[in-house]
Structures are given as C-alpha cells and as structure tokens.
C-alpha cells in the first residue's frame, strides 16, 4: 500500500471486532519464551542486536543540558574497550533538550527521539499537544513519542483518542510517530489490544508500552499482545508497525526474552532497530557486561562500565 493510500484508509476501526485476549493464556505463552535457552554465538548476536535497538533515555524533571550531553557521549561511546560494537538506535529526551542532543550527536548516525504531547500524563489541550510536537520536530527530533489520552480511552471516547493521534501524526511531518499506550493505566490486556489497533489505524509508526513513569511499565505480557496486534494489522494492511517496550527492562536476560518473543511472533523482518526498540536507561550497561563476559569468560563488575 502506498503512503497516500494508508493515509486515506485511516478510519477508526470497530473495536468490538478486536479479538479477545485471555490473560492466563498470554502468561503461559510468555513463560514458554522465557524457557528458551540462548547461548554462545546466538547470545552474542542477540546482545549486539539489543544494543542497537536501545533508545537511550533520560526523562527527568532534573535533566540539564549537561546530563543530556553526557548521555549522548554514552550513546556514541558505549564501551570502547569492546571493538566493533553497534551504537544505540536513538537517545530519547524531553522536547526542550532536543536541540542539545542534536548538537551533541552531530555527525553520528543516532536518531533523536523526543517525548511530546504533555508527556507523561497527556493531560492538556490538543492545541498544546500539537504545539509540543511541532516544537520537538522543529528542534530536530527524528522521532516523536506521544502519549494517548488514557482518560478518554477508558471513558470510551475512542474517536477522541483516534483523532488526536491522527492530528499528532500530521504534526510530526517526516518524523516517526511512536504512540505510547501507557498499558499500566489501561488495566486489561483486552484494552491493550484495542488501543494498539486504534493507534495503528490512526497512523502510528510504532506502538510503545509505557512512559516509564507508571508501574507496571513494559511487561512481556502486554508486549506480546501488542506484537500480535501488529502482526494482524500487517496481515490485513501490509503495513509494518514497529514495537517499543519501555520501562523496567534493565537486564540482558530479560531483553533476550523479549527478543525471543519478537523473533517467534513477528519473525525476521522485525529483528532490526527500524522495527523494534527498547526504551531503557540502564539496560545498555548490563548488555555490555554480558558481552564482555562472553568475550573474556569472566564475570564483570559495574565499576568497569561508564554510567552516564
């Protein structure tokens, strides 16, 4: 399908037709992914892939230009002691930090993602949210991570949520749009699935679990449900949508489980940073420690890995 055709097809789907989700069944499937044993070269390959999929993130009220610059340094120099490492996919910051990141990452093939739309709660007017988005894009953001209006969604105002995403997508221009469902506030996997379908039909390039500000953040359960929604959407429309679990994924082991889940749910085509991201701040170092352990045979200490 052409981009124009996709745009034209943007219609609020009938969410009552979205298949039901059984929580226990999802838990069982997730448990199966977790029994996969990933060793040796498969593990090294996975760890490198994970690094390349990371959206290195700082989203604090206390963020400063200095903090963001250091994060960008980390993004460029993950661990120079280990030659041939990939770089992370992106750094993810607040809109007012986009220009700082832009400058710090100049000349490097690392994208800049910015949250927008009154992140993390989304509790503002549409006008403000669109302005927020345009500001970030104007400052140089390649990707926009928006939040949906959970209150409206829970109240059943799907049209409102849908139109908002469509509008933000317009405001993004060429920037990629990641739509954060904030699954921790949706309550059930059925709602996660419906919100995923809604967001994709509204034009999301990525769907994303969480802001990281609400517990629970990403879980394998909600991620699986979203991956299955992506798969069905792809089957129906031919358009690939990316997936970004965010928050709470801080160990290599867990990240590998996610990768296994991705691999066995969507297949090879999604196994790239173009279609899958981890929103994480501390995951990178754990992955680096594991990589060093794989190459040296020695268990590592955090003291040997830079914390930025």
């Amino acid at each position: 399908m052409s981009v124009a055709a996709v745009k034209k097809a943007r219609r609020l789907p009938d969410l009552s037709c979205v298949p039901a989700v059984d929580e226990v069944g999802v838990n069982e499937r997730v448990a199966r992914f977790q029994t996969r044993s990933i060793k040796k070269s498969a593990k090294v390959e996975a760890l490198k892939l994970i690094l390349s999929m990371i959206d290195l993130t700082t989203l604090e009220g206390q963020d400063t230009a200095g903090k963001v610059r250091q994060l960008c340094q980390k993004a460029i120099h993950l661990h120079d002691a280990y030659p041939g490492l990939p770089h992370v996919a992106a750094v993810c910051v607040y809109p007012n930090m986009v220009s700082v990141a832009k400058e710090a990452l100049a000349g490097h093939d690392i994208r800049i993602a910015s949250v927008a739309t009154a992140f993390p709660s989304g509790m503002s007017s549409r006008k403000v949210k669109l302005e927020d988005t345009r500001t970030a894009v104007a400052a140089g953001a390649d990707e926009i991570d928006m939040v949906i209006s959970r209150g409206e969604f829970l109240a059943g105002n799907y049209r409102y949520v849908f139109d908002e995403i469509v509008a933000v997508k317009e405001a993004c221009g060429d920037a990629h749009l990641k739509v954060i469902l904030e699954t921790g506030e949706l309550g059930t996997l059925d709602r996660v699935r419906r919100a995923s379908v809604l967001a994709m039909h509204a034009g999301a390039d990525f769907i994303k679990t969480s802001t990281g500000k609400v517990q629970p953040a990403a879980t394998m359960q909600v991620t699986l449900v979203m991956l299955q929604a992506i798969r069905d959407y792809y089957r129906d429309t031919g358009r690939m949508v990316g997936m970004k679990p965010a928050g709470g994924i801080s160990t290599s082991k867990l990240a590998i489980h996610y990768l296994v889940m991705l691999h066995e749910t969507l297949g090879n085509a999604w196994m790239t940073p173009e279609w899958f991201r981890f929103g994480a701040s501390s995951l990178a170092n754990d992955v680096l420690m594991q990589l060093m352990k794989q190459s040296t045979g020695l268990y590592q200490s955090a003291d040997y890995f830079s914390k930025d």
């Binding site: 996969r36 044993s37 990933i38 070269s41 593990k43 798969r231 129906d236 691999h263 969507l266």
Partner: peptide, 20 residues
C-alpha cells in the same frame, strides 16, 4: 485481505545455538 506477501518469515536470520 491477507495476501501472500503479508506472511511472516521465520526461517533464516537469528537462530538459537544448541543448548543441550
């Protein structure tokens, strides 16, 4: 609406090493 080209590919790519 499913078309053959919308199929997922699971062969090739990342493969698990033996874990006996």
């Amino acid at each position: 609406m499913a078309t053959p080209e919308n199929k997922l590919a699971f062969d090739g790519g990342w493969a698990y090493d033996p874990a006996p």
